[in-house]
Every structure is written in structure tokens, then in C-alpha cells.
């Protein structure tokens, strides 16, 4: 229902600040963990997708840019992109890449690998990012995780931005790994799987 704006309707500002801060001090990337844990906690504790529905700043940012700023073509997205196999496949791919990033972080913590001051875009392109690194009080691994995590966040923002332009503003929401994961948790808790209608 269209209502008075709530405080959480401005969380797109937080997302914007987060993305900008990564250009100045990479250690801010750590704060992005909130975007991972809060949706999971809400889905586990409250059995809702309350994060997607109300608090997701990225979704709001895309809705704003694609909607009010008119950057979106507002066309239907291709059928394969909203299919289950693509959504679950993307979630699995995302997980693999995430664990690889954690592994690299571990190697730096363990001293087996040197810190790489790069942000990897689209899991392929290594962009020099040394200008956002000013040292850390802790282990180099802390910085390595920041670079890796920011890579994940920037990559997914770029993907979401491209599909925002091509399709509907919040197309990202359809294949967002966090969204897919929280929906799976909600499905499991709602028992729609045990009744044999897991596809619902």
C-alpha cells in the first residue's frame, strides 16, 4: 500500500554511500556483510522476505534509477532468466565464487599468498584498486577480504544495473542470490516443500 515514507525507504542512500566509499577506503567493504546477514536473519527468525520487501537498499536504488530517472526500458526479461534453473544455478555459481574469495582471504591470513590490491569485476577483470588502500592495523587478510567482498558487491551491482537498463528496474531481484536463498529458507519453513509442491 502506498503510505507515508518510512525511514527504511531511504536505505538506497546507504547503498550509494557504500559503493562510493569503496573507491576511497576499501576497508568499508566489511560493512556490506550487513547485506548478507540481515536478510538471512530475517528469513530464519521471522520467515519472511522482509529484507527484500522493505529494507533492500539496492532494490530501492534500482527502482529509483530505473523508475523515476527513467533509465530502464521496462521490457519483460527473457524467460530463461526467471526460470528456476537459472536462479538456482546463479545461486550455486555465486556460492562457489564466494567460497573461492574466502579461500583467497584465508591464504593471505595464513601468509601463503600476498595481498592483491585489485577488485575483480565480473569474476574476470582485475582492476587495480591500490588507491583505496591505506594500510590496515590488522592482518593483510582483513584487507584481502575487503577487496574480495567489494568485488562481489560491485560485480552484482553492475549486473543488476545492466539488467535494470535492459528490462524492468528491479530485474536484479529475480535472480539475486540473496533473494533466492531467503525465498528457499521461507519455502522450507512454510512447508511448501514437504507437501510435494516445492515448485510453489
Amino acid at each position: 500500500m502506498k503510505q507515508k515514507k518510512q525511514w527504511y525507504d531511504y536505505l538506497w542512500i546507504w547503498t550509494t554511500i557504500y559503493l562510493v566509499m569503496g573507491f576511497f577506503n576499501i576497508l568499508f567493504a566489511w560493512l556490506g556483510l550487513a547485506c548478507f546477514f540481515i536478510p538471512l536473519i530475517i528469513s530464519v527468525v521471522k520467515s519472511t522476505k522482509g529484507y527484500c520487501n522493505n529494507y533492500c537498499g539496492r532494490g530501492q536504488l534500482f527502482a529509483l534509477l530505473g523508475g523515476r530517472f527513467g533509465l530502464s526500458r521496462k521490457k519483460d526479461m527473457p524467460k530463461w532468466m526467471k526460470s528456476k534453473w537459472f536462479r538456482y544455478g546463479f545461486l550455486i555459481f555465486f556460492f562457489i565464487m564466494f567460497f573461492q574469495m574466502l579461500w583467497n582471504t584465508y591464504l593471505v591470513f595464513a601468509g601463503a599468498q600476498d595481498l592483491k590490491q585489485v577488485v575483480t569485476l565480473l569474476w574476470t577483470f582485475k582492476v587495480p584498486w591500490h588507491w583505496a588502500y591505506h594500510g590496515t592495523l590488522f592482518s593483510d587478510g582483513v584487507a584481502q577480504f575487503a577487496f574480495g567482498f567489494y568485488s562481489v558487491m560491485l560485480t552484482s551491482t553492475i549486473l543488476g544495473f545492466v539488467t535494470m537498463i535492459l528490462f524492468k528496474p528491479r530485474s536484479w531481484c529475480v535472480y539475486c542470490p540473496m533473494g533466492t536463498m531467503t525465498q528457499l529458507i521461507c519455502k522450507a519453513k512454510a512447508g511448501t516443500c514437504s507437501t510435494g509442491s516445492c515448485s510453489r
Binding site: 500500500m1 519472511t48 522476505k49 527484500c52 520487501n53 526467471k82 533473494g179
Partner: peptide, 27 residues
């Protein structure tokens, strides 16, 4: 089409009558 719904809640936000709700975070 509930089978294809991702429960993102975009529809809930724009409905002027508050006629849409998300069922248990599923659809």
C-alpha cells in the same frame, strides 16, 4: 503466477489499495 513469483514485494509497494501481500516469504 505464484509458481514463478520471487516474493520481492515490488507489487506490494505500488498497490494503491493494499490488496497484495507476501505469503510467508514465498509468493
Amino acid at each position: 503466477l505464484q509458481n514463478e513469483c520471487v516474493a520481492c514485494g515490488c507489487c506490494v509497494k505500488v498497490c494503491p489499495l493494499g490488496a497484495i501481500s507476501i505469503y510467508k516469504g514465498v509468493y
